[in-house]
Design a protein around this nucleic acid. Structure first.
Lengths: 228, 228
DNA sequence: CGGGTACTTGACAATGGTCAAGTGTGGTGG
DNA sequence: CCACCACACTTGACCATTGTCAAGTACCCG
């Protein structure tokens, strides 16, 4: 697939004219990263931002003791690292590929020019950042106001919803990464999935999870307790 | 002070021409709220967003049991409720005044037109949302990776820094609200401030807090333990 | 001066993290 | 093609942090 077609398929650039797309292509830097490579680290000066073409990138924070909290996974078509383009100049978190990934890099200065000339690009970016803010408020809410079983239930329901309501789920990440995304540790995820299995709420076989009792899962997500 | 001067002093509108400012003034709705009034609730359809002229507004989430997590306080010159203008259409959190407040309301549709015509307005808004994202990543980091003494220490240091490094602080919010902002409860704040006093790290008299040992506070913020 | 709210303190409980010791399991190279 | 190794995951015992509940004190505003 040609670069221009790839660029045109990125939601951020939807609504741009052919001419504008060509301008974007002109500043696009095509990069490939192996699995587990660091794209950037927190505090680093940012020269621009990225869009995932293929593969998957995790955005995360690290504690002083080395524990990580994943903020989100970036999948094809989505961008990351935009914050320092517009404020502060430094990346607020770490980015690392979790599989071999192709990324497009867009240098800050030229991109800012483009955005200044093109209101629909600005609008797409505003929508992007707004969606991200919405997700973050949800993350804060879950970390602060919900217990782990509730967060896990919400995540499973989210996966199911994203898969058109299917009850047969397949994790695209390891359970360790899932733990880090939910603000906990693998042991806790293991125990809770164990309890959920025991109550016939889900069935777990490796990365395959089947929702057996959706109602109970919804109750858990709403804050109901999971007894032993 | 006239509306146009007030509007011109809002950072979001910096860099706009006199003419553009007048367009903004045309769509400005001037509102006054008493202390403790709800500005909007989570899930509500948003007709526009707000800027605080005077007073203070808290943005927060509520758990199913009624516990609240404050996302941030909005002070004069700052805006809130922009997310649904660009994505989703519904407020992701609750907003309530914590003192008598004067707010400017900007209706969504007209504001979107303005932004489409004016790149510098779009740019200001992008910077705004980016700063907010940065703050949220920090909030997530603290909630997930740091313990309460560490968060409290970081908050006190932040206050001190904002006050040009002064060691004499005065909370502009109640300790209960501080607890909710730090993702904990008043009892815990009370106990930790008690310990900090006992170790001569700070001195507390009501809402006045004096930093006695800044070094220890920085160590706490970095993750060092606070013994009994 | 009174009343309500903010705050403090204590005893207790529970969520979930730490540490340690396994048990799979998938992928690679011999 | 199989053996092995690394890594993901599980399970158990323990414990730290922090939340809950209850009671009492201080303090501010009207």
């Amino acid at each position: 697939m040609s670069i221009i077609d790839l660029v045109a398929s990125i939601p951020l650039f939807h609504g741009l004219s052919q001419e504008q797309l060509e301008e974007v292509v002109d500043i696009t830097v095509d990069q490939t990263f192996q699995k587990g490579q660091t794209v950037f680290s927190e505090g680093e000066a940012a020269a621009g931002f990225y869009v995932v073409v293929s593969g998957q990138v995790k955005i995360f924070k690290l504690s002083s003791e080395g524990k990580e909290q994943i903020l989100h996974f970036v999948t094809p078509g989505e961008s990351f690292g935009e914050v320092p383009v517009f404020a502060g100049g430094r990346f607020p978190a770490h980015a690392e590929t979790i599989e071999r990934s192709r990324l497009f890099f867009f240098p800050r200065a030229v991109f800012l020019e483009l955005i200044g000339k093109d209101p629909s690009l600005a609008m797409n970016m505003l929508a992007d950042l707004s969606r991200r803010l919405r997700r973050f408020t949800q993350l804060v809410e879950e970390l602060s106001l919900k217990e782990v079983p509730s967060r896990l239930a919400a995540y499973l329901l989210y996966l199911s919803e994203r898969d058109n309501g299917s009850g047969d789920l397949e994790l695209s990440i390891t359970k360790g990464q899932l733990a880090s995304l939910l603000g906990t540790i693998p042991e806790t995820i293991s125990r809770i999935l164990g309890k959920m299995s025991g109550h016939d709420i889900v069935r777990v076989q490796g990365r395959k999870i089947t929702i057996v009792n959706r109602k109970r899962l919804e109750d858990l997500s709403a804050g109901e307790k999971l007894v032993d």
